[in-house]
Amino acid sequence: MQKLGEFKLPHFFNYPPYFTLQPVRDTREKQVQLWKELIIEYCRAQKVFIIGLEEDFPLFSNRAIERSLSHEARVAFLSALVSDGRAEWTDKGHKKCLILWHRIQEWADLIVHFVKENGLEDNVMTVEEIRSGTESRGTELYGIDRSVLMRALKLLEHKGKLVIFKGTSTDDEGVKFSL
């Protein structure tokens, strides 16, 4: 089985029609479905948050069979993720796409779980510490996209579970948990 870095690719990745946008509705629906799954799986495994449409994204081409997705196809598959709520366009021109393999609510749940796990219920942490601190190492939070993290934190703040404040010594923002 083929691999892309550490990521194990499914067999159909070598199926040439997988890389051509299928015009027949039923076939296309299935093709889109498979692409959505593969993109999510790949991004989760590789911790990829942003896919740039004009940049080389390893999943969108297959050197072994010399096929790559057309721009139209990339837009079609990412748009399908966006309409599922599992991705968002970050700009109006649809050039960059934010992939949410966890929805914001799920990320928020992960943060709560992380805080309880580490006994940080009434502590203060900086945002940067959550992303790359020793506590978060080995968890899904490690290396999380900053904007995604901020949105999850704001969601929790809205629910009264924490307070975000501007740091005094650094530019970084601080978080005061109150679970």
Partner: peptide, 8 residues
């Protein structure tokens, strides 16, 4: 739905 295409 019997076939699908490959344009390359």
């Amino acid at each position: 739905g019997l076939l699908c295409r490959d344009i390359s």
